[in-house]
Amino acid sequence: MTLMEIRGVTKQFVTRGESMRARKTTFTAVDDVSFEVELGETLAIVGESGSGKSTTARIAARLLEPTSGTVVFDGQDVTRARGRELARFRNDVQVVFQDPFSSLNPRYTVERIITAPLTYQGITPPTGRRAFAQELMERVGLNPDHCRRYPAQFSGGQAQRIGIARALAVNPKLVICDEAVSALDVSIQAQVLDLLMRLQRESGFSYIFIAHDLAVVRQISQRVAVMNRGRIVELGPRDQVFGDPQDEYTKTLLAAVPRINPEWDAKRRQAQ
């Protein structure tokens, strides 16, 4: 079943040139992009800086309005949704950002942060806020006894887990991860990726996973869209995009990824 459909979305920004007197020019950040997200799947969008991947994610999350094109969610056109309709959409679609600390209010306790989406949606958990927050903390691998601590008292990996717990508070159907593991150390990154995959298996929601790191994308996605200069240049099943890329840009991108010397790596794994 198709959960989300992006149809011919274009986003233009008006910019000025280098001098103050320069004429206004329009910059097309996203250029006629279309894709679908199936229920329960992970669609990754990869690209380099300026490729339009984050703008696409923001449009899908309704944080930005497209210049043209439509966003269909659960069979409803939500491109210009407002009021109640938008509130429901915001309930179903959650976002996890790159920098965990800047997306967590430093003055709120973890309990308050995690239960904030419930407040916005006017939901009161039957077991009470604390029990609800603690249960979620446990699910994402945080110590529930720490629910009255503040974000600054957690490490980067833990803070990202708080962001994930908050996203899950309202049982979303789609979670959009915008470079959600990019700022983390490699050992922590592996743990958070495992967590994201486990949560999806447990709850069956979909991910749109935005990342610049192709190796990370390979770990988590079923389908991959490669973006370059605002356009999707290639979209297909993961193994096809990685194993038999059709587009020139995809090939360049894959070739540029640094790799651990394969001979050394094979030797080490054999010994282990």
Partner: peptide
């Protein structure tokens, strides 16, 4: 060893 194991592989 732990660090090397944690590196996501593209190939």
């Amino acid at each position: 060893r732990m660090l090397l194991d944690a590196v996501p592989r593209i190939d």
